[in-house]
Design a protein around this nucleic acid. Structure first.
Lengths: 228, 228
DNA sequence: TCTGTTTGATAGTAATACTATTATATTTGC
DNA sequence: GCAAATATAATAGTATTACTATCAAACAGA
């Protein structure tokens, strides 16, 4: 099976981990460990032990663990955009594209054989639990200058253009799109941990309910009608 | 001027800081310091230096800095609910109440003379930058059992009931209300740091734009119409 | 085989998030 | 107004974290 790779912003790493065995081990195991331990408890020392290497070696690939998280989440946005492209490429109207897009955003994430050494299920859980930590820091403006958020921005821009396609007079396309994207992961988190704060439930049909909620939110908000 | 106090969940602190001078200094200075340094760089040692006390003394009031953040944010939700009550108490229809409520949520936060030793402007910035860190941890289920999120839950419940009042058939009242609450602070953060991701701008009329966005999101979503 | 690069091994540092102990203030009850 | 109780300060200490530095071994390419 062929392994695809994304070309990610070079500021995300010191050395590209996709090109060496050690780099691939770092990626594979950091996804597993962050998922298990949470980002706070995750350390390069634990990672190094896991892959039978040393802290110093890991630092040759990533400046620090915060950048590593950026890398993983940057990868995730590239992957999500790639999947959205896959399911919208054959559709013509922006409305249909948006519908398909919501489906991809809300769906349960499964292992993707096109990509070796990344467990997409675990990575999705990392996004749900840790995404906000990439930008809720005092270095956010610097990180932004270096382009660390370009994956997320690129995705937002694409979806926003479809929103404008549906309703060119709508005033808040960017705000709405990032609300949808962040709400998707928030609702999953709440369903898991603070169920009284959500309405999507915790059962088997959770992803269908989430899709319905996001669809309602998006289309009711952008569709032109007289109310409100 | 009379100083009001909120009765907060007792698990939020070891000793109630409202009752002693040292406790009040801890609260006052931790708001200032977390606002300045960010939660990661904030330590009990720096706080102790600031108030001419010691680390050990601070630990007698708060189990750790994470609990202190919970305390401050719990206080914030109580304060916001108190303000919402203030501006909705004389209104009769749930629709009017929702409208007034959005206004309070979106408005610029100013110093409130009813409460000593809390700088509400700084505290609001803390909520914007640090709120998510209260629940994005591995201890979230435990914290929830101890009732640390009861302030947020109480507010969500109140607003959700108005939503149901406007549209009793709407399927996602809780999900929508927490989306609105979290979106309010996210959009402010994005306007400050990642402006290309929002549509509310960074100018003087920012709070009015935010209010308009939240209002659109809320009322279009819950109002009954045939589209979507 | 020579050369350069990658990795591993080891050591070290300043800071963090605590805990523990004891002495000194300060408050309170009587 | 004094003893008892409690709150606070001062100090010390610990395990862990997030790095940085150095050097030797392994290996890969030419």
């Amino acid at each position: 099976m062929p392994t695809l790779t994304f070309r990610l912003n070079t500021h995300l790493f010191v050395r590209d981990p996709q090109h060496t065995l050690l780099g691939q081990n770092i990626i594979r195991s950091s996804v597993e460990l962050i998922d298990q331990l949470g980002f706070e408890q995750f350390t390069f020392k634990k990672l190094a032990e896991e892959i039978n290497s040393t802290e110093a070696s890991v630092y040759r690939y990533f400046e620090n663990k915060h950048r590593l998280l950026h890398y993983l989440i940057g990868w995730y946005w590239s992957w999500l955009e790639y999947r959205i492209d896959l399911f919208t490429i054959n559709l013509t109207s922006p409305r249909e594209k948006l519908k398909a897009c919501i489906k991809v955003i809300a769906e349960e994430k499964k292992l993707d054989d096109n990509f070796d050494f990344i467990n997409e299920e675990a990575l999705h859980r990392i996004v749900v639990a840790e995404l906000d930590k990439t930008y809720l820091t005092k270095q956010v403006d610097n990180d932004n200058k270096e382009g660390l958020f370009s994956g997320f921005k690129s995705l937002c821009k694409k979806i926003s253009e479809w929103v404008i396609g549906v309703n060119p007079t709508f005033q808040f396309p960017n705000a709405l799109v990032n609300t949808i994207l962040l709400t998707a992961k928030q609702q999953i988190f709440f369903a898991n941990h603070l169920p009284s704060l959500t309405s999507i439930g915790n059962e088997a049909n959770r992803h269908a309910r989430l899709e319905e909620f996001l669809e309602t939110l998006l289309f009711k908000t952008i569709d032109i009608n007289e109310h409100a």
